[in-house]
Write a protein that binds this DNA or RNA. Sequence first.
DNA 1: TTACAACCTACAGTCGTTGTAGCTTCAAGA
DNA 2: TCTTGAAGCTACAACGACTGTAGGTTGTAA
Lengths: 144, 144
Amino acid sequence: MAERYSIGQMARIGNCKVQTIRYYEQIGLLPEPERSAGNQRIYNRAHMNRLGFIRHSRELGFSLDRIKEILALTDDPSHSCETVDQIARRHLLEVESRIKRLQSMRKELKRMIDRCSGNKVADCRIIEALSNHQLCLSERHPPE
Amino acid sequence: MAERYSIGQMARIGNCKVQTIRYYEQIGLLPEPERSAGNQRIYNRAHMNRLGFIRHSRELGFSLDRIKEILALTDDPSHSCETVDQIARRHLLEVESRIKRLQSMRKELKRMIDRCSGNKVADCRIIEALSNHQLCLSERHPPE
DNA sequence: TTACAACCTACAGTCGTTGTAGCTTCAAGA
DNA sequence: TCTTGAAGCTACAACGACTGTAGGTTGTAA
């Protein structure tokens, strides 16, 4: 019943290279999986999901250390509520700031594409839209 | 009238190190600025905005190569519409996929925090929420 | 006018990954 | 059953995007 995945299948679904997965194992982000008689790694669905989480988080720009921290929360249910609350809230603030910035990037890209369907790219304002120093500041001094 | 910024001020606003800015100059992502009599870099508002765009994009997980591509569009208004359209649309798809993933991350973080205000972290589902392989797949085979 | 922070170049080190070399294992068809 | 080619293994070097350090110079404010 238990699904079994080779490292190659993991890499395909995680949208990364085989070596990346071995690297995650090496630094303790993924647990050492079982091995086949011939010493090849055998993963299960839990590994797959964990890798999925890591890869999405990486693509969204979070550091491996940050990801490790979040995973630790979910690995050990004995964490105090304060700890979870602190880390999760901090992460949430960052996630929300990223959503905001991506939304303004989306708006400007759409504007660019629309305008282009006219004829000239003459005045592209994507830089102005995203240089927006207010956003930086609000991230560094979150309103609390 | 023209605002003048030192490399240190740039770094502060761009939320990065001074060396990072020199590095961007070195690889041609930022233009060489004027220099003072004593050979120190002098930036203006345009540099500032450009740096802001780069830094936001980086924090949102885009590669310098991708950023260079987008900046090239805005630098040279003589690009053909097809080029702009292609690159901008591709970027837009990725931005939208990231927004989606961040939104599901946000949802799970909120759930985590709420639940915690009860008492136990017992069942955290952030991994399941974000391992979501549908999302990967839809990104790699965007619905066209 | 001095003293100290901020700048300069040049180069080494780090993090997260990717590539290469040289070998072994697995699976599928002759 | 044999073989052959893809996929796996370890070990280690190289890459992209920074970050730190050394050793010196400039800018500014008391």
